[in-house]
């Protein structure tokens, strides 16, 4: 039978030779193209940060609870070269997409209270958060922590708003359009918003965002999450974290294709 007169029927036992040759060519082509596509897709991704989420590894930390503007655990980290005590502020969040106060008993903790917490550490670029799973114990003693916050003056920053928990390593990527909905959900759940700023040299810094009087901005940021934004406010150093007391009226979108810029909150 010549190739022109051959006829293929799926339920017959044998595939005619000319059909078999065509299918073989297709399979060979697919065998080359599909691995090549897999390689190109993987090779040309942006890659992922070296952020770490110690999922499954519980760490217990003792320190001083700081309530405002965001829940931190201030822990002693030894001494520096001058013999001065070094402290680290660890941002506190709850499991899932919730802020620290979602944990039972957390809302009752007072500023300056000594506490022992257990959970999974999340850290990246010198910033650390703790996904708290339980409050081990706390004393009723409180001591107003020494105010080491350093005002750094008024600044205008350009960056992307996301949530620090995912950004520090719970999710990869923890930023950008694909992560937008997750960041919206995390911020709506009480996790403080963070502004990720990358300078022209590729160096990155993170600024936790609060209102001008330290009030939470979570409820009015959802439309700006994952967009390029510009915002002005008073910058303050809180241990190893930077907090921007932002003026909502100065928040503007700066990315292309954005909707009309406008004030963040009424």
């Amino acid at each position: 039978m010549s190739p022109d007169t051959e006829f293929y029927i799926g339920w017959q036992k044998e595939i005619p030779p000319s059909f078999k040759r065509a299918v073989r060519r297709f399979i060979t082509g697919a065998g080359i193209a599909i691995p090549l596509l897999a390689f190109l897709i993987v090779r040309y991704q942006s890659g992922f940060s070296t952020a770490t989420f110690e999922f499954g590894t519980t760490t217990e930390l003792s320190g001083t609870f700081i309530r405002d503007p965001f829940p931190f655990l201030r822990v002693a980290g030894g001494t520096d070269a001058h013999g001065q005590a070094v402290f680290q502020n660890i941002l506190l969040v709850a499991p899932g997409k919730f802020g620290f106060d979602h944990i039972e008993g957390a809302a009752a903790l007072k500023n300056g209270q000594a506490v022992k917490l257990a959970g999974f550490l999340v850290y990246h670029d010198g910033k650390t958060a703790l996904e708290v799973h339980r409050l081990e114990n706390s004393t009723t003693d409180t001591a107003t922590p020494e105010n080491e916050n350093q005002p750094l003056g008024a600044v205008t920053l350009r960056g992307e708003i996301t949530d620090p928990k995912c950004m520090l390593g719970v999710m990869k990527p923890g930023e950008g359009k694909p992560h937008r909905d997750c960041a919206v959900r995390c911020i709506a759940g009480g996790i403080p918003p963070v502004l990720k700023v990358t300078n022209t040299a590729g160096e990155t810094e993170y600024y936790l965002l609060a209102g001008q009087k330290g009030e939470a901005l979570n409820d009015c940021l959802s439309d700006f999450v994952a967009d390029g934004v510009q915002v002005r406010g008073q910058l303050e150093q809180h241990g190893d974290w930077l907090v921007l007391y932002a003026d909502p009226a100065t928040l503007r979108r700066i990315n292309k294709g954005a909707l009309g810029a406008g004030p963040m909150c009424n």
């Binding site: 499991p95 899932g96 997409k97 919730f98 999710m171 992560h179 909905d181 997750c182 959900r185 995390c186 709506a188 759940g189």
Partner: peptide, 9 residues
């Protein structure tokens, strides 16, 4: 699950 579960909605 990744982007929408374990949240307040």
């Amino acid at each position: 699950v990744q982007f929408h579960a374990l949240g307040n909605a």
